[in-house]
Design a protein around this nucleic acid. Structure first.
Length: 293
DNA sequence: CCACTAACCTGTAGGC
DNA sequence: TGCCTACAGGTTAGTG
């Protein structure tokens, strides 16, 4: 599911409800997702206050009081949602809603203004995972990540440097989180279409003999930035199960030019091409054979 | 170092 | 309806 725009949408949805909330309890329904939960994970979180909610690449980072950082990756199908407490009978105790099949963790939060609420992590395929650090620099997951594509250090010069000595197809290079962090299958396809670049094209062809970026590489940087900004603006893409924190789907999927559009007309103005699908390193690529070279 | 495949796990869509 | 296969937004270990 979640590439950078979806994770950013999740972050923006969680932040207002989590910031300032105290974690009153953590319940894990199993010991592991993709990896085991850290030792003492529930105990370490309980009692701390969430100070801020950040995103790096496709990772969510919750900054906690007392000097801890809680890292969360959503894998393919991870999601967070809020559940109201239900009040059972005359009791003044809170009774959380029954867990659904793939609910793996429940965080009971007390927000100073909004009262108690449950944050639920669900993940059918369990490719997601969580970790806990004193400092994000300890995290092997964050080490080695390339630049944020929306930050200034993602630019044609920097890309040229990484592309110059590679022969990889553009598709594979852009999926490589060490080259640029946060792109996934959908947005790589869409960015390449915007730059009129074919996913099979080799990285080296976008760099001059002197190692400088070509105009086509500048186009690629523009394409990556534009598609991510538009997708964030649209609340991400909902293919199957992605939901914003308020339960609403994103709607950028309606703006796809190539992803999952094999056999349909190219959306480049004036282009009469038909979108094709091919498989590169085990993943589907979609492109227009007429306007992408 | 590079590139590709299989694997992790579950759900769903499509063909027969 | 049921069975089977292919495929899905991500990442990584293993192989050549």
């Amino acid at each position: 599911m979640p590439e950078l725009p979806e994770v950013e949408t999740v972050r923006a949805g969680l932040a207002p409800l989590l910031q300032g909330a105290r974690i009153d309890g953590v319940r894990l329904n199993r010991a592991d997702l993709r990896f085991p939960f850290p030792p003492e994970f529930a105990r370490e979180l309980t009692g701390r206050t969430i100070l801020s909610v950040h995103r790096r690449a496709k990772y969510l980072l919750f900054e906690l009081s007392g000097g801890r950082v809680w890292l969360s990756h959503l894998g393919m199908t991870g999601s967070y949602r809020f559940e109201e407490f239900s009040f059972k009978g005359p009791s003044r105790y809170y009774e959380p809603t029954l867990a659904r099949q793939h609910d793996h963790a429940r965080f009971t939060l007390l927000h100073p203004d909004r009262g108690p609420l449950n944050l639920i992590y669900a993940d059918p395929r369990r490719f997601g995972f969580m970790a806990l650090y004193r400092d994000p620099s300890e995290s092997p997951f964050l080490a080695g990540l390339g630049p944020e594509p929306l930050a200034n250090d993602f630019n044609a010069e920097a890309l040229a440097h990484k592309f110059a000595h590679r022969k990889a197809p553009l598709k594979a290079a852009l999926l490589d989180q060490r080259v640029v962090a946060g792109l996934g299958n959908i947005y790589v396809c869409e960015a390449l279409w915007r730059a009129h670049l074919r996913p099979t094209r080799r990285t080296g062809t976008l760099v001059t003999a002197a190692g400088k970026p070509t105009p086509r590489l500048e186009d690629l940087v523009v394409g990556v930035r534009a598609v991510l900004l538009e997708a964030i603006e649209a609340g991400g893409s909902t293919l199957r199960d992605f939901r914003k924190a308020d339960g609403e789907p994103g709607y950028f999927q309606h703006d796809f030019a190539v992803y999952d559009r094999a056999g349909l007309a190219c959306r480049t103005p004036g282009c009469t091409g038909t979108i094709e699908r091919l498989v590169q390193s085990g993943r589907s690529s979609f492109f227009c054979p007429l306007c992408q070279h």
